[in-house]
Design a protein around this nucleic acid. Structure first.
Lengths: 205, 205
DNA sequence: TCCCTAATGCGACGGAAGTTGCACTATGAC
DNA sequence: GTCATAGTGCAACTTCCGTCGCATTAGGGA
């Protein structure tokens, strides 16, 4: 959508967009968010910095665009046979993804950081997480079809309960053991879901 | 501890420390983390910027020192009579504290943001949250004494389960309704604790 | 193929962030 | 009281970030 309003979406513009976003991801993976700068992205991509400032506006918007791109991937939640183990796999995936230094984890971590400083990044993160939660609903819906959980279970809320403790340890309390936390959170969330604690939409909806 | 290694902890040095940290908090409350800069703190506090750079090193370390100071406050967890309502009050306090623009919430939010960029800030945040979790254990211990939850319940883990979804909505998924989420998370955590799901230390300890 | 102009490249500029050397002040030991 | 020096103030300096005006290039309609 970045170029939806453009009058010349083809050729060089498209090439520049690709080069810049790719360079952004590479810089993130290499140096992290703290050292992410427009000048470095410009140098790596071969696109002039003035162009980047004009088209995106700054580092945070650049990051938002990169995340938006990542949003269009083909990720699907795990399917292991039971709600609890699906949730556990999900949580462990989160813990592993953010802990590792691979590109995907770096982008996500950087965006969480950037969201504190830029409305554009915050919005990009919100949209990304919304989409992820939407896809994760599948996990709960399968459980519902299996009869594991009652009908009308708020799928997103179950997933939130399962993964929130992992994120909490990673970025809020900054503790070790996010991976182990996934198992317990998954169990608690699954049990609560079976007991019908997550039935119906939350009050504020 | 900032001045523990100093050879001249008294007089002007102490006054400067107080003035700088107070100015840091004031700047945070007024303009937020994104606009927090050493120069502005220097101007507000009346301490020269070179001094601040020499003593702390940068904005993030400044913030870490301010949080460390806040760590020594007299905060205690709510005591409402039951585990679930205590946890709910706790979660709502978190949601309200971070949403509001008061000074305390600003410092905590800013530190979470700074923790992504500076090891010093990350460590300060970790220590702060550790202390908060330690104080919150009281809530679960009271419930244990009342017989609400089985003996040997991992208090910190119960609290994490109760507040993590609130933090998740605030800073990760960036959704609305963090306050409402507190109620459901508190209920789920309390029920799980009663069922003994949080008995014993987690595996990775 | 031609041509208008959107998009980019380029270099210079203003300003803010952070550093450094030097002089001075005030602390705390004696 | 005196004195060595830790700590601070000051100002100049170096980078780096972001912006701007203008020249140049290339997309895409004719």
């Amino acid at each position: 959508m970045t170029r939806a309003t453009s009058r010349r979406p083809g050729g060089r513009t498209a090439r520049n967009t690709a080069a810049v976003l790719e360079a952004t991801l590479a810089e993130l993976g290499g140096s992290g968010y703290a050292d992410l700068t427009v000048e470095r992205v410009a140098a790596r991509s071969g696109v002039h910095k003035a162009t980047i400032y004009r088209r995106w506006g700054g580092v945070d918007e650049l990051l938002a665009a990169a995340l938006e791109q990542a949003d269009h991937d083909s990720w699907t939640p795990p399917d292991t046979g039971s709600l609890e183990s699906d949730l556990r796999a999900l949580g462990e995936e989160v813990a592993a993804g953010f802990s590792s230094d691979d590109e995907e984890g770096s982008v996500a971590t950087a965006t969480i950081a950037a969201a504190f400083q830029s409305p554009a990044a915050a919005e990009a993160l919100r949209a990304f997480m919304e989409e992820r939660l939407r896809r994760c609903a599948e996990v709960v819906e399968r459980a519902e079809r299996r009869g594991e959980v009652p009908e009308g279970t708020d799928a997103a809320e179950v997933v939130r309960a399962a993964v929130a403790p992992v994120y909490f340890r990673l970025f809020i309390s900054r503790e070790e053991g996010a991976g182990q936390a996934a198992a317990r959170a998954a169990r608690v969330a699954a049990e609560a879901a079976k007991a019908g604690e997550f039935r119906g939409s939350p009050p504020g909806r």
